[in-house]
Write a protein that binds this DNA or RNA. Structure first.
Length: 565
RNA sequence: CGGGGCGUAGCGCAGCCUGGUUAGCGCGCCUGCUUUGGGAGCAGGAGGUCGGCGGUUCGAAUCCGCCCGCCCCGACCA
């Protein structure tokens, strides 16, 4: 029984002043969520129903690939995290109990699940396994934001696969791709599966599922030819430099007083920014100084640089530029450099470039990589809209919400935590592992972001808290109300989850609330309709209205429902 | 962590600069009557430690100091 007259669905005419993202504003206004603290949210009854719809889709698809649902604790011994090497993570909440024993609040559950597998899996006969749970996660985020998009406490489905070798892991990974594709299709989202960073903590492959929308925190590079990657790691063919100066036989000094920026040098010499070599003096963890070069119109991508060099990178400090690089800040360049030089691939083959002269107020023109200095080459720049993929298709860049990710961990956790098995010959091997996450709350937020209109939320029918909202007009005791009551029963008989607006409120208020809350179908029973023998149906997405016969309205509504997205 | 902003009734805001009786407005809420196909009308009513602590002052929402909370941009997000 869900009658609005007694249901806790506190809708608001105005959004909280500090809400910025559309999903944040609408989920609050529609009475789905309320804030408790920064990054801490309560799901009110209707919001929780939507969340559970998302969970259930995830559960069914994970079960379909052989996943086994379980439940692990949020509160975990610090010892496990010390063993795995993750205890130092700043986002990890750490605490002590009354006996001063150290505990953590889990942000994911690799340590615990691996411990169970390590203890109880001994034979190749016990593998493969896919284990998952849908559990609260805690993260001490530096900056929670945008309602449900980035919170300190949230519910996540995390699954873990255990296989005897890389081939098995690949199979489990492929199964998850299949499950995830189904999940996001069923959730009604527009989504992309993109290549993503494997991180510093080991692992050999990773993909993210991205739902494009303006509030997204991530950027994805896409082409119509099917290229899809997180901008963090995307690669592409750069656009050519227009107006490159002609080549010279040897570099030639040119006075550039006070010109320490790309823009200043470019203006002073009358050459495009792309004709410049941008030089970044960086310090490499455990390897010392490196001079990194990109084209002047390109941006260095620190993550790609770090991955290319295989070590953590930090910018050199001003003193280091002078002492270690023997260079002048603002005029640093690769010709005659005393340190290792790494050049971005986009510079390869270019001639007639302008580079810093390593002396105050001096640049060199006619510079040619490979002739005037010998770099090692790497792809370390950030791709841009307008670049092209291998097939020649043009890159576009869209903001997106990360709604899921899949990750090959290999033996990153099984080795430190002792996860091994014996093969047919009695030989011990480490177990190969994968981990796979989905945030149901982000699915909700992405659905709101992607489909909302000026009137409010428009849920995909698979996520909607209720299948339909029934609006009964008129006063209690009037014939229209009795008809509405009967239809309410019929709809429930027909298998609908119905939200019935039986409040003593004006029609306008009821319609506005129904559209704000966003059920895919609205059925209205009023005096006029009853006299004409019809029920008005409104399809929320597009707000198209249709007339249904009063006799058999529930069946007609069920048919209409089948057509909805 | 760097930068910016905000904190006065459930929500949205004014008042603060220039200190001075019972701190206002709109929406929402309660009661009654009317109204009922697009956020109704009239009448009456309830609701506020002005984020907290301390200071200045005869007197502080208002001035000063410290603290707390929240939002946005950036950094960060293994």
């Amino acid at each position: 029984m869900t009658r609005l007259s007694s249901y806790f669905l506190p809708t608001l005419k105005e959004a909280p002043a500090d809400a910025e993202a559309l999903s944040h504003k609408l989920l609050v206004r529609a009475g789905m969520i309320r804030q408790v603290g920064s990054g801490l949210w309560t799901y009110l009854p209707a919001g929780w129903r939507a969340h559970r719809k998302a969970e259930q889709i995830i559960r069914e698809e994970l079960d379909a690939i052989g996943g086994q649902e379980m439940l692990m604790p949020v509160l975990q011994p610090a010892e496990l995290w010390k063993t795995s090497g993750r205890y130092a993570i700043e986002e990890l909440f750490k605490l002590k109990d009354r006996r001063e024993a150290e505990l953590v609040l889990a942000m994911t559950s690799e340590e615990v699940v691996t411990t169970h597998v390590a203890r109880d899996v001994r034979s190749y006969r016990d593998l493969p396994l896919i284990l998952y749970h849908i559990q609260t996660k805690e993260r001490d985020e530096p900056r929670p934001r945008a309602g449900l998009l980035r919170t300190r406490e949230f519910i996540m489905k995390d699954s873990y696969s255990f296989d005897r070798d890389e081939e098995g892991l690949q199979h489990s990974y492929d199964l998850h791709i299949k499950a995830y594709d189904n999940i996001f299709d069923r959730a009604g989202l527009r989504w992309y599966r993109v290549e993503s960073d494997v991180g510093m903590m080991g692992g050999s492959a990773a993909h993210e599922y991205m739902a494009p929308c303006p509030a997204g925190e991530n950027e994805v590079a896409l082409t119509d030819a099917g290229y899809a990657a997180n901008v963090e790691i995307a690669s592409a063919t750069p656009q050519a430099v227009d107006g490159l100066p002609s080549a010279l036989d040897a570099p030639e000094p040119v006075e550039t007083p006070g010109a320490t920026t790309i823009e200043a040098v470019s203006n002073m010499l009358g050459v495009p920014a792309g004709a410049l070599i941008k030089a970044f003096p960086v310090m490499l963890d455990g390897r010392g100084p490196v001079l990194v070069l990109t084209r002047g119109d390109h941006r260095l991508n620190e993550l790609k640089l770090q991955n290319a060099l295989g070590a953590a990178v930090r910018p050199a400090e001003e003193g280091e530029v002078r002492d270690v690089f023997s260079a002048v800040p603002g005029f640093i360049g690769p010709v005659g450099a005393h340190v290792e030089v790494v050049a971005d691939e986009a510079l390869r083959g270019l001639r007639g470039l302008v580079a810093g002269g390593n002396e105050p107020d001096l640049h060199l023109r006619g510079v040619e990589p490979g002739r005037d200095f010998e770099p090692s080459w790497a792809d370390v720049r950030t791709v841009e809209a307008g670049d092209t993929d291998d097939s020649g298709a043009t890159i576009r860049i869209e903001p997106a919400i990360e709604v899921g990710n899949i990750f090959k961990l290999n033996t990153r956790y099984t080795v430190p935590l002792g996860g091994t098995y014996l093969d047919e010959g009695g030989v011990e091997h480490p177990i190969y592992m994968g981990c796979y996450g989905i945030g149901p709350a982000r699915i909700m937020a992405a659905a709101v972001e992607q489909y909302a209109d000026e009137a409010g939320i428009s849920w995909p029918r698979s996520l909607s808290p209720y299948d339909a909202e029934l609006v009964g007009l008129g006063k209690e005791g009037e014939p229209a109300r009795e008809v509405a009551e009967r239809l309410y029963d019929d709809l429930r008989q027909a298998g609908f989850d119905v939200l019935y607006d039986d409040r003593d409120a004006s029609p306008g208020e009821k319609f506005a609330d129904a559209e704000l809350v966003g059920c895919p179908l609205r059925l209205t029973v009023g005096k006029k309709g009853v006299e004409a023998g019809e029920v008005e149906a409104q399809i929320r997405r597009g707000r198209e209205k249709r007339s249904l016969p009063l006799d058999g309205a529930a069946e007609a509504a069920a048919e209409l429902w089948q057509e909805l997205a």
